[in-house]
């Protein structure tokens, strides 16, 4: 871990401004992924801005009946929130499927969205990785890729986004609120927050340098039966091979987002029209352009079967 200076931010705008105007600065909140990466010098900030004191840790009702979740709300608190448990069960379920009790107590809402891939080649600084070292190549292609993405991949990167929470938020059509270095606030639909790798996998989100996530808002509840099904080898404390976030309405319509299959939570709205026809039809659309490797081709039938199970259960 390289030496860094450390300050505690006083306000979101000041934090954003400081981040933009300090060389190689990063925000730190829960720290559960950032410090992991700093120890390996995959992340090498020269300055850390501790945003934990920013009072962004509240969950409030919005005027339209939705929820506004402060960026610093811990995963445990978000999962345990009564409104979330009642009206956004898919989110509660996704959070509880992730990490461990200890990590959920520290990890924040914004930090969870911004966590980085667990691709083992990204984590080993001796090996090529375009995400870690642009232009060095992708060692996962042609390497051990059982965990990797099957859709939305590029020649440069086949990493997945590891979050469970983000998959549920994608299904819920969440919106990310930010403050920019100039102090201006903006909102970003979660669909537009994460990028596909393309030829610049090192750029993972549409946030600008210094831009700070302040909250995530959920629209008013959409009802339906909500489920998050995470499939993994180990029964707990493991990243998803495939996960399915689903909201199924009594009339058979609904929403589906997948985790563990792409560089971002994978949702194709057009595929949801196929829901009444069943999982096979939906996944056929979701994976229309899939490019699995030999190691991870199983994710295609696995996702289909997992979705089928979720739909069967949702429909009773």
């Amino acid at each position: 871990m390289r030496a860094f200076s450390y300050t505690r931010a006083q306000s979101p705008a000041e934090a954003a401004s400081a981040a933009a105007h300090t060389d190689n600065a990063k925000f730190i909140a829960g720290g559960t992924n950032l410090l992991d990466l700093m120890k390996l010098e995959i992340e090498t900030p020269a300055h850390l801005i501790d945003v934990n004191g920013l009072a962004l840790d509240r969950i409030e009702e919005t005027p339209d009946g939705g929820l506004r979740i402060g960026a610093l709300v811990r995963n445990t608190d978000l999962a345990a929130n009564e409104r979330v448990r009642r009206d956004y069960a898919v989110l509660s379920r996704a959070l509880l499927a992730g990490a461990s009790g200890q990590l959920r107590n520290k990890a924040t809402t914004a930090g969870n969205l911004l966590q980085r891939t667990r691709c083992p080649y990204f984590y080993d600084t001796n090996l090529p990785c375009n995400k870690r070292k642009p232009g060095s190549g992708c060692a996962a292609i042609g390497g051990a890729s059982r965990q990797h993405a099957v859709v939305g991949v590029s020649e440069a990167c086949i990493a997945t986004h590891p979050s469970d929470m983000a998959v549920a938020m994608r299904a819920l059509d969440a919106t990310v609120e930010t403050v920019r270095p100039d102090g201006a606030a903006r909102t970003i639909p979660i669909a537009e927050l994460h990028r596909l790798p393309g030829d610049s996998p090192e750029i993972e989100t549409t946030l600008q340098p210094g831009e700070l996530i302040t909250a995530v808002t959920l629209p008013k509840p959409v009802g339906g039966t909500q489920a998050y099904r995470k499939v993994r080898d180990r029964a707990s404390y493991a990243f998803a091979l495939v996960s399915v976030a689903a909201i199924v309405q009594p009339d058979g319509t609904g929403r589906v987002a997948l985790g563990g299959v792409a560089h971002k939570p994978w949702r194709v709205e057009a595929a949801e029209a196929e829901l009444p026809r069943g999982a096979k039809a939906v996944t056929a659309r979701l994976f229309a352009d899939a490019k699995p490797t030999q190691d991870n081709a199983f994710k295609l039938p696995l996702a289909e079967r997992t979705l089928a199970a979720v739909l069967r259960e949702a429909r009773g």
Partner: peptide, 21 residues
């Protein structure tokens, strides 16, 4: 990884051992 000659999953997140559950 037969190209680079190493065990690629060299940490406790990627080399899974049983947990309580």
């Amino acid at each position: 990884d037969k190209r680079h000659g190493l065990f690629i999953n060299h940490d406790l997140a990627s080399y899974e051992v049983p947990v309580h559950a």
